[in-house]
Amino acid sequence: MTKLDPRLHAYRPDLADIALQGRVEAERYVSPRLVEVIEPVLSLRKAPRFDAMQLTQAMLGEEVKLFDEQEGWAFVQLARDGYVGYVNANALSPNRRAATHRVAVPSTYMYPEAGLKTQPAVAITLNAQVAVIAEEGQFSRLDNDRFVFSAHLRPVETVEADFVAVAELFRHVPYYWGGKSVQGLDCSGLVQLAFEASGIAAPRDSDMQERALGEELPANALGELARGDLVFWNGHVGIMTDAETLLHANGHHMMVVAEPLRQAVDRIAARHGEITSIKRVAL
């Protein structure tokens, strides 16, 4: 059998998604249960341990396919981008809501009352989904009896007009492997969350994004780049904010920075190689 990418296909030697029966070998095949993330930000890990590598993150309200649960760990696949891994089972709920709004700012708070001084306040981040049941002054009451400042929410069907402008909101956010929130993110996480806010489906990892996003430009197009172009290296991606400036989360600065593209190209080439492709995405 052809080996399927385990990042995007739920299978292990002992069990697999029933949709993969006949494509992978496993002791048993199971149908997933649909559950929902109830933590503000949930780490999806490579193995069922808290010290295992973080692969990506899921946000509050995100739908998850649950295949197996053992000793407090759930083997899941994120419905939004198909990524597979392990999460804390206590952060999932079978009680799925009909989300009405999404968080449209890098971060905001859920308060116990419709007042900015009330505690405890819980931070939620861009692209989290919530269910609004009433309006109280400047605040929206959620179905969990918490309140969010209404101006920080948008109806789930509305999207941002410019994914680059979304990404620019995260300048100076710390680099964090597998992260995709204002608390920390990596290069492909920045691209994905900006695209999600703009209504564009994007894969999680940079190699997937390089294959799936945009139209490829010629290798000699460095002098003709435009806002929104994506520049790829082996294992890295950045977003052009204009013809000369690259915005990217990177391990050199350990945060999201905007720097001259030529400067980034020279530095990255010395350690990791040359640009592998440039992709143009319509704004």
Rank of each mutant, 00 (worst) to 15 (best):
V37R: 04
K46Q: 11
S188Y: 13
A121N: 01
D51V: 05
L153P: 02
L92R: 11
V231R: 07
L92W: 12
R12W: 12
E136A: 05
E135K: 09
A201K: 12
L42R: 01
L230S: 03
V37I: 11
V231S: 04
P174Q: 10
N90L: 08
P32Y: 10
R28T: 06
A201I: 10
R154Q: 08
T125N: 12
V64W: 06
D17F: 11
A26C: 01
R141L: 15
L190V: 07
D51R: 02
V30D: 04
H248M: 00
Y83E: 00
F195Y: 08
F67D: 02
I133C: 00
E113K: 10
H272W: 14
T241C: 00
F67M: 03
P203T: 01
K117C: 05
D143N: 07
V76M: 03
F75M: 05
I239C: 04
G178H: 05
Q183A: 05
K279H: 08
A79T: 13
A74S: 08
V132C: 04
V164I: 14
L20K: 04
Q183K: 05
L66D: 02
V122N: 02
P32W: 09
S140N: 08
T56I: 09
N234R: 10
D186M: 00
H236F: 08
A264I: 11
T158F: 09
L153Q: 02
K65A: 15
L225C: 06
E63R: 11
K180S: 14
E27P: 06
F163I: 06
P155T: 06
L142E: 03
Y175F: 07
A282D: 15
R7I: 07
P106G: 04
D51H: 03
L15T: 08
Y83T: 05
E224N: 13
V231C: 04
L15Q: 07
A134E: 13
I38K: 03
E62A: 01
R154A: 08
I278V: 13
L169T: 11
L247R: 02
A269C: 15
Q57N: 01
A202D: 10
Q54L: 04
L213P: 01
Q183I: 09
F67C: 04
F50M: 09
L44G: 00
M208S: 13
L92G: 09
G199P: 01
L78W: 06
Y29L: 04
V30T: 07
H252N: 12
E215D: 10
T125D: 14
K65G: 14
T125E: 14
D229W: 02
Y175L: 02
H101G: 03
Q54V: 15
K46S: 12
A99D: 08
A282E: 15
L116T: 14
D162V: 15
V281A: 02
G179H: 02
P13D: 14
E215C: 07
L247G: 00
T2W: 06
E216K: 14
G228Q: 09
L66P: 00
V237W: 10
R267A: 11
A194I: 06
M208L: 11
E196K: 13
N250E: 03
E27G: 14
H248S: 01
Q119R: 14
A74C: 09
L42V: 11
Y86E: 06
A58N: 05
Q77P: 00
E168G: 05
Q138K: 11
G273E: 01
H172S: 10
R141E: 15
H272V: 11
R33Y: 03
A226E: 15
E157Q: 03
Q209A: 05
D162Y: 15
D145V: 06
